[in-house]
Design a protein around this nucleic acid. Structure first.
Lengths: 160, 160
DNA sequence: CCCTGATCATTCGGGCCCGAACGATAGCTG
DNA sequence: CAGCTATCGTTCGGGCCCGAATGATCAGGG
């Protein structure tokens, strides 16, 4: 946020507001959408993957098969949203749903061979884009950024 | 990102990857969605506003009427997306579209009295939530965070 | 004057996203 | 063992979101 914009805002909304917090929140959101859009455009679209789809596949790769509610949590998605994402992935044979015999309400989600192959192929380039996108920060800054954002997120979720 | 998770990832994806950048990007995205979801749930939904709709109204409040393409840019939305958001706002008489007589391709977007009234009423609470959400950071940290995220965003957009 | 190419906003197709409602399943309790 | 109650995943309604295609409008050159 440039100083000019900041001044415009102060002038219009008046005093008694918390501009530091506003700038922090605004920048978190803007940076996130920029990163997501760039990575989708430059990489994921080409492989027919959405951000959410790639995330799910990545989680299943790292931690192996898991139940749907936990996968939703790991991906940061509402369960209804995850259901749709999984349907898309399933249509392309990248994941499978297995109903648990021990509790037929639950569903275990498993990446197929093709799913694992895809995420393994895409991840290196994904990581390279992460590096590119954060190239204006030092290693120490990246750690600091991640730490501050982690606190921010825990606070936000704690408020709910 | 906890150390355990980090270790799991290192073990599976193997060496030669940039985990610092990965953690930074992951946390940006997760923090952004947490914040957005909380603010929508706790405030905007009650007023029938989406994040994008509130943003558009806020921008029009601060900087006054502006052409549609600039508004899209200020809101960080694709122009097609903004068109939909504006239709929603227009249906509720919160904004108006004026075709420019000087160039009938262009559209000037104006907040109505009701629109200004709404954004003025909602903004103080919005700002309070921004304060709450960032309460685990010091003022200096918020400034640092905003600065790093600004650099990050400019880099991301520069890559495209 | 047209014609051509550029530049607007809108529309469209597809998918994401949420919360609420739903139906199926499980476990408890009397 | 029948009837609650809680807890699954899915579905549904509505809106957001993008990129590509579309149609309207404008500016410049023959």
């Amino acid at each position: 946020m440039s100083q000019d914009r900041d001044d415009d805002i102060r002038r219009v909304v008046g005093g008694g507001h918390d501009f530091e917090s506003m700038a922090a929140v605004l920048n978190v959101y803007r940076a996130a959408t920029s990163i997501r859009n760039q990575i989708e455009r430059k990489l994921l679209n080409r492989h027919g993957l959405s951000w959410g789809g790639f995330t799910a596949l990545f989680v299943l790769w790292i931690w192996g098969p898991m139940e749907s509610h936990r996968l939703a949590d790991e991906c940061g998605l509402a369960k209804g949203t995850l259901s749709g994402v999984l349907t898309t992935l399933e249509r392309r044979d990248l994941i499978r749903r297995n109903r648990l015999s021990s509790d037929r309400r639950r569903v275990e989600v498993v990446a197929t061979g093709a799913g694992l192959e895809l995420v393994k192929a895409v991840y290196p380039e994904f990581n390279r884009l992460e590096t590119d996108v954060t190239s204006s920060l030092t290693g120490e800054e990246k750690r600091l950024l991640a730490d501050m954002l982690g606190r921010l997120r825990r606070t936000a979720e704690g408020i709910g």
